[in-house]
Design a protein around this nucleic acid. Structure first.
Lengths: 135, 135
DNA sequence: AACACTATGTAATAATATAACATTTGAAAG
DNA sequence: CTTTCAAATGTTATATTATTACATAGTGTT
C-alpha cells in the first residue's frame, strides 16, 4: 500500500495530464497542459495529445470544441462519454457541464427524417452566467 | 437586368468566400478556401478569416466546430444564426444541417438550475448516415 | 522466451488562426 | 463635391493547435 492511488487504469502520462485537468476550475488547453507538465518530464506535444485522446476515449475528460480546451467529466456515471452538453458564459467564459435528464433523454432519443441514427452528440450553449448577467 | 444578383450586401471578398462555401457539398476548411481563391486575388489568411467572421455574423454560414470547417446556412429563415444543429456521419463525414422545429423549440426554451439564460447553442450529432449504415 | 499490444520519447512539420499596421473604399452628412 | 467615418482590404509576420513518422520501452500473456 505504497501510495494513494487514484486511477488504476491510467498510465503515467495519462494520469499526469488528467490530474492537471481535474484540478483546474476551467477548461485547459493542450499547450497549457504541456507547459505545466514540463517539470514532470513530458516534453512534447504528442505526449499530451496522446494522453488527451485516451482520456477522451475513456470518458474521463471532454473536449469543449468551441474553445479547443478540455474539462474533466463531472458526471460520475459517464464512463464512456457519447453525450455531452456544456454551458458557456460569453463574458467570463466559465464552462459547466450540464447534467440534465430531460435534456439527455430528449437528445438521446432524437430522430429525424434523415434516416440517420445518432449515437453521440455534443451540445454547447452560450449565454450569460448568473454573475455576469448582473453587470 | 445585367446579371443574376446574389448578395448585394456582401463585400467583394465576402462574396467570393461565400460562393466557394455555398457551392460545396461538404464543409470547407479555411485554408482550402484560401487555396481556391488565390486566383481571385485573395492571398493571405486574414482576408479569408475576416470574410468568414462576417459571414458567420450575418448567419450566412456556420462553423462546424468539431471539424474546423464551414458550411452555408440552409435554413433560409436563419438570418442571424444563434441556434445551429448538425448531423455528422462518422464514416463518410457528410455534414447536414438539421432543421427540426421540435428540436429547436426544445433547445431554445431549455433552462436549468444554473440560472443561466441561453441565447445561443450549437449541437453536433454523430452517427452513421443511411448510406454508410448499409456497409 | 516469444509475441502482441499499449505506451513513451523525440524531432520535425502540418494545419488552423490571429496580431499589427498601413491603405483603400464606400456610403452618409455637411 | 468634399469631408468624414466606419468597414473592408492588403500584407507581413507570428501565434496556436495538432499530427506524422519513427525509434524505443514497458506490460501482460501464452
Amino acid at each position: 500500500m505504497a501510495k494513494m492511488q487514484k486511477e488504476y487504469n491510467l498510465s503515467k502520462n495519462q494520469q499526469i495530464v488528467f490530474d492537471i485537468i481535474e484540478k483546474s476550475s476551467e477548461p485547459v488547453k493542450a499547450y497549457s497542459i504541456l507547459y505545466n507538465v514540463k517539470k514532470k518530464g513530458i516534453k512534447a506535444p504528442p505526449q499530451v495529445y496522446r494522453a488527451l485522446e485516451k482520456l477522451i476515449k475513456l470518458g474521463k475528460i471532454h473536449k469543449v470544441e468551441s474553445k479547443n480546451a478540455f474539462v474533466a467529466c463531472k458526471s460520475s456515471n459517464c464512463e464512456i462519454s457519447k453525450a455531452t452538453a456544456f454551458s458557456i458564459c460569453e463574458i467570463c467564459e466559465k464552462v459547466t457541464e450540464i447534467a440534465n435528464n430531460k435534456l439527455s433523454n430528449f437528445l438521446n432519443s432524437f430522430e429525424d427524417k434523415s434516416g440517420m441514427k445518432y449515437k453521440k452528440y455534443n451540445l454547447e450553449f452560450f449565454g450569460l452566467c448568473k454573475k455576469c448577467k448582473k453587470t
